[in-house]
Structures are given as structure tokens and as C-alpha cells.
Design a protein around this nucleic acid. Structure first.
Lengths: 206, 206
DNA sequence: CTAGAATTCAAACGATCGTTCCATACAGTG
DNA sequence: CACTGTATGGAACGATCGTTTGAATTCTAG
């Protein structure tokens, strides 16, 4: 399934990501992963030490760049003389949706990410917290800047709902299918547009 | 863990629901379930036939009444001379949040429900579609009634986001913790209030 | 070319999985 | 009392799980 001219590590990560997205972390076995990656079963424990660590590395590979892109987009917004709620939401939403439509297989990762939210695995949550918390904190500060009428508790409530809606939309949970004449890129752009408009209205609501 | 004065079937369902919520469908074994329920391992296959069917029955027990409550609430709203978007949203949201704070262990079920959305298991999706589609259809018709300016495609987009946010909020994915002086009931009521206000604003947005 | 490190390989480990089998216990019925 | 159907019990089935081992192979530096 995967071209053999990539390294063993990469092929394992690609196959693991895809299979975790489809069958979950417990549901996808290392034998399925290594068979899909066309590598030996023992290669996982050789290169990653354990299945648990393989899961972490699947996240790290994508989250590092996603975090960078989000923070870069946010920094660009904050540098403008004038910016609004929609701009901050865009900085948060668009990199994630861009990842979900990446041509390198990143589409599967967003479903892995959605599973991570559903899983209440402590070690996984700690790992995600270590990678995400500083990003979230910066966005909360930015949102507070353009929503001064919301007290902090209220803002956290609403941002929580936004995050949920975003995760849901990213993972393409719903029944909405791409319309025949529309490219994947247009489809995702439309999704971002709807999501931002929706979330902005919800956040601004009196 | 479970009182022995309930039937074997009920104790299995209770334990399965709780363990599926914590560890997922693949992650919770029948040995864990039967140990927690204090019944023999073979009892699952005797009463339910298979693990897959046990999963279905865990859903059926809760979804049947949830669907009834939602449709009843919607019917009550539609009978009024005047009703708005928030009333329909309330009919959709409140029964689900009420389930999530039920004293009979229904709190765990909403997390099971959230997992079902994350799982792309075909048989499970078919089962949920069979139980849910007629409810969703009625709500879509009601929403279209108070949102005549939205074409059908746009409405489906937004309702999809609402469902995602609701599922997310119900499963208590987020970091928001109940404030010390607040009862569980007040906490959920506040959640419903925020969610409805948020969703209504997003749905009404131009 | 060769020594040594790095990687891949087939095979097996013990543990656990869902499921099945059959004996047993206990009702209600004749 | 014996008979019948329902329910529960312990034990084992074959399959699959994550992991480990040690030899074979490939790569790399001197």
C-alpha cells in the first residue's frame, strides 16, 4: 500500500495513523500496522519501543507543525492595526482544516485527533496537554481581547463549545458529503467559512 | 460494584456501559465487564449472543427513551401558537443533557455515544441510523420552519455543527469543571443555556 | 576488504481475547 | 416424584494480542 522508497519509520507512522483513524488505538493491532507498512512486526518495537510510544509519535509528527502554523497565523493577525473575532477564529480553524485536506495523508490524522478527545486515556491527555496548552493559552488571551464584555468563565464555556464543534467538523463526523462538482479544497474552504461564521455568531451572542 | 438484587442482564448492561465509556468498545473486554457485573463470563454470550450485540443493546436501552423524550418535547413546542428557534433547540438539547445527568448511571452513556461518533464502525452507524434518522428528520423540518431564509444545504451544514458541539458538550470533553458551590443539576442547566444560546446565534447568523 | 554497528527477519513467548462446551442448580408443570 | 426449560458455573477452545529473542542481513567507517 505504501511506496517502499520511504524509511521504515515513516511507513510505520503512515500506516499507524491510517489504521488508528479507522479502528482506534486498541482496535488496530501492530500486526495490521506492520503488514500495511510492509515491514517486519518487530520493527515497531525496535524503532518506537512500544505501541504506546508509537501512538505518541503519530501525534507529535503532526501536532508540532500544526501548533507552529496556528501560532504563526495568530501572530500575523495580532500584528495588524485592526482585527476582529473572525480573524482569530480563522487562525485557529484554518490550519487544522488545511491539515485535514493535506495530500500527504494528513486527512486521517484529524480523525485520530478526534479519537484522542473521545479517549480519556490519561497518558495521551497529558501528552496532548504538553503540546497544546501554550497554544490554547495564547488564543484565549487573543479572544479575550476582542470579547471584553465576556468574563473569563463565560469565555471558557464558549471556547469549549467552539473546540468541540471544530473537532467534530474536522473529523468529518457528519453526514455531509462533498457535492459532486466541488473539489476537496473548495469543500474544506466552505467548511471553514461556515464554521467561522457560526462560531463567531455564537461567541458574540449577548 | 453493582448491587446483586438486579437481574443479570441489567448488571451486564450497566457494567458494559461504564467500561465502554472509559476504555472504548475494543478496549473493554468481556472479562472486565463480567467481573465488574459479578456474573459469569459465559453470561454475556448466553443473554446477548455476542459482544457486538451487547454493544447494540447498550445503545438501545438509552436511545429508545431519549428519542421519545426529544420527539415529545418537539411535539409540545410545535403545538404552541408561537415558538422560536431556541425552543426547538431546547427540545433537542435538554433531553440529552438530562440523560447525561441521570442518577442511574446515564452519565456514562453520553461518553459511549460520543465514542460511537468517533468510531466509523459500519454496523454501529447503521444501528444508530435506524434509531435516529426519523428523529433527525423531524427536527430538520422544524428548524426549516423557523429558518426559512436558509436553503436546505446550508441548514444541514449548520445542524451538523450543532450536533457536533452538542455531542462534545454532552460528553463533557472539555476542561470545564463544575464550580464548587454549584450542584450537578445547576451545572447542566447552565450548560444547556449556554449551548442553546450559542447554537441559536450560529444558526441565525446571516 | 573487514570489523562492528545498525537494521531486518522468522519464530516464539506468555497473556488475553471472544466464544463454546457441558455439567450443574433451580425453578414450574405433569 | 420425574420432566422440562432457564440460568449459571467452571473449564477449555483456537485465535490474536504486544513483546522478546537471536540469528541473518545490510550498512558504514576505518
Amino acid at each position: 500500500m505504501n511506496a517502499p522508497h520511504f524509511s521504515t519509520k515513516q511507513r510505520i507512522l503512515d500506516s499507524a495513523e491510517s489504521l488508528f483513524a479507522r479502528h482506534g488505538f486498541a482496535g488496530a493491532s501492530l500486526r495490521q500496522v506492520t503488514a500495511s507498512a510492509q515491514v517486519n512486526l518487530a520493527a515497531v518495537n525496535y524503532h518506537f519501543g512500544s505501541k504506546e510510544n508509537l501512538i505518541n509519535e503519530v501525534f507529535r509528527r503532526r501536532l508540532d507543525s500544526l501548533n507552529e502554523e496556528r501560532l504563526a497565523a495568530l501572530a500575523a493577525v495580532l500584528k495588524r492595526p485592526h482585527f476582529g473575532l473572525e480573524d482569530i477564529l480563522d487562525a485557529f480553524v484554518r490550519p487544522a482544516l488545511a491539515l485535514s485536506m493535506a495530500h500527504d495523508g494528513g486527512a486521517g490524522f484529524v480523525r485520530v485527533l478526534a479519537r484522542a478527545f473521545a479517549e480519556h486515556n490519561e497518558r495521551l491527555r497529558k501528552f496532548l496537554h504538553d503540546n497544546y496548552s501554550h497554544v490554547l493559552k495564547q488564543f484565549v488571551a487573543a479572544f479575550a481581547q476582542v470579547l471584553p464584555h465576556l468574563d473569563k468563565q463565560e469565555l471558557y464555556w464558549r471556547l469549549d463549545i467552539v473546540s468541540g464543534a471544530l473537532t467534530y467538523a474536522m473529523a468529518d463526523f457528519g453526514v455531509i458529503k462533498r457535492r459532486p462538482g466541488m473539489s476537496e479544497l473548495q469543500h474544506r474552504d466552505l467548511a471553514a467559512e461556515h464554521l467561522i461564521k457560526f462560531a463567531a455568531a455564537g461567541l458574540k451572542a449577548g
